[in-house]
């Protein structure tokens, strides 16, 4: 397919109303998965702490499972029928979950160095925002509570929270694990922009914040690029 002959608008063949209704129908259809996802997110928030230089693997593995769920269930089975790129997004989400499981699951994780901009402030703020504030933005936009996008079952808060978690660790492959969440931030921002959703800048700005926080210590010579 000649993708270059298509514009961004061609890739989003649904209206804002249909997109919001997608989450309403999905949340009802997979209930109680959104509640389980939120519980996983809260678990990740309270366990993702550095203890004696180490970070527990559990929140990363739980989040990896959420990526696989979202890829297979939300993207491929719910989103893709409305929009053909959804299948490719689904593959990307499953791949991200598998990568996180393989890369982070087999040895203890080293925490990000003390005294850098990476830890703990921005990471925790991103996590808290993804878990609590971002879903509530939907209410401000007039969406019903059962149509809110929550961590663990919806792509946006899960991608954001993943970036927060990644900021907490020191790992040689952290950059690899950042690619798909960062790409999703841009895709989501572009989708919401085309749909004229006022909150569209949030995901791209979060990606920029992540990159700034991850790269800034290297600029200052206080941390290695990871």
């Amino acid at each position: 397919m000649d993708l270059l002959s298509y514009s961004l608008v061609d890739l989003i063949p649904f209206s804002r109303e249909t997109y919001f209704r997608l989450f309403e129908r999905y949340n009802v259809g997979v209930w109680p998965a959104p509640i389980i996802g939120l519980a996983i997110g809260l678990t990740a928030l309270f366990t993702a702490r550095r203890v004696e230089g180490k970070v527990l693997r559990a929140p990363f593995l739980l989040t990896a499972a959420c990526w696989v769920w979202i890829g297979w269930v939300f993207q491929i089975h719910w989103h893709a029928p409305l929009s053909w790129p959804g299948t490719y997004f689904g593959i990307g989400f499953v791949l991200q979950g598998a990568l996180m499981g393989v890369v982070l699951g087999w040895r203890p994780l080293a925490g990000a160095p003390e005294g850098t901009h990476r830890d703990p402030g921005p990471a925790l703020w991103i996590l808290v925002f993804a878990l609590a504030l971002q879903p509530l933005l939907g209410l401000v936009s007039g969406r019903p509570w059962y149509g809110l996008e929550v961590f663990g079952s919806a792509p946006d808060p899960t991608a954001l929270a993943t970036l927060g978690l990644l900021l907490m660790i020191r790992h040689p492959l952290r950059w690899l694990l950042s690619i798909i969440p960062l790409a999703w931030c841009l895709i989501s921002g572009a989708t919401l922009w085309v749909l004229s959703v006022p909150t569209w800048p949030i995901m791209p700005l979060a990606a920029a914040l992540y990159l700034g926080v991850a790269v800034w210590p290297r600029v200052l010579g206080r941390g290695e690029l990871e």
Partner: peptide, 13 residues
């Protein structure tokens, strides 16, 4: 039908 009829299984739509 571009965009307007792409509403999936949504019975209301």
């Amino acid at each position: 039908t571009w965009i307007t009829f792409n509403v999936g299984d949504d019975p209301t739509a």
